[in-house]
Amino acid sequence: MVFLQGTWGTVKLFGVTLIGSLVLGTVLAAMRVSPTPVLRGAAAAYVNIVRNTPLTLVMFFCVFGLPFLDIRASRDSALNSFVLACVALIAYTSCFVAETLRSGISTIPVGQAEAARAIGLNFGQTLRFVILPQAFRTVIPPLGSVIIAMLKNTSIASAFNNRELISAMRGAIEQRGDITLIVILATAAAYLVLSLVLGRIFDYLEKKWVIVR
């Protein structure tokens, strides 16, 4: 029962972070290939700073640092911890999504963008309709790795007042110290199941969206 709640906590952190980091990562990747130097520079600076900071530190910053700047997500303590943990995970994961996507963009033949511009699409439309859909399809395998890493990274939120698999495991060990090893293995199994399901979804998408040139 505790484990089910814990798994649900992990899935919630994962789901919100997945959507948030895909959106922010796509925006960052678009900025990094934009013709405007200011946007390119800002995105590059953000990615280089956040990507090279340990996630634990990013989470410390969000959970304990932001309140000093009078930034709070909610008066409700549990919700506040959840939102701030998601913010940290999104901030961190989006860098990896952006870099993965950027590598995908660079594999798209330059003629695709030229053809798009030649029919009168502007930069944003060219990205949205021609470049990004193809880039996403080509980076599904490495993007899958980024997202599976993110799933496991949600465990760090357990140290910041979040209820998820690891905190459920700690609670279970405190109550039943005699089966510690089993509890740890069961937790690992829960992560394994979630990761394998994700892996299957990515395999499916990879086959479904394959682009023949």
Binding site: P109, G111, Q112, E114, A115, A116, R117, A118, V130, Q134
Partner: peptide, 20 residues
């Protein structure tokens, strides 16, 4: 420029059809 390009058709050596 995008507006102007829409009035100028272009056909490339390598076709460049949108692959997806």
């Amino acid at each position: 420029l995008a507006q102007l390009r829409s009035d100028v058709g272009m056909v490339f050596q390598s076709f460049n059809l949108f692959a997806h």
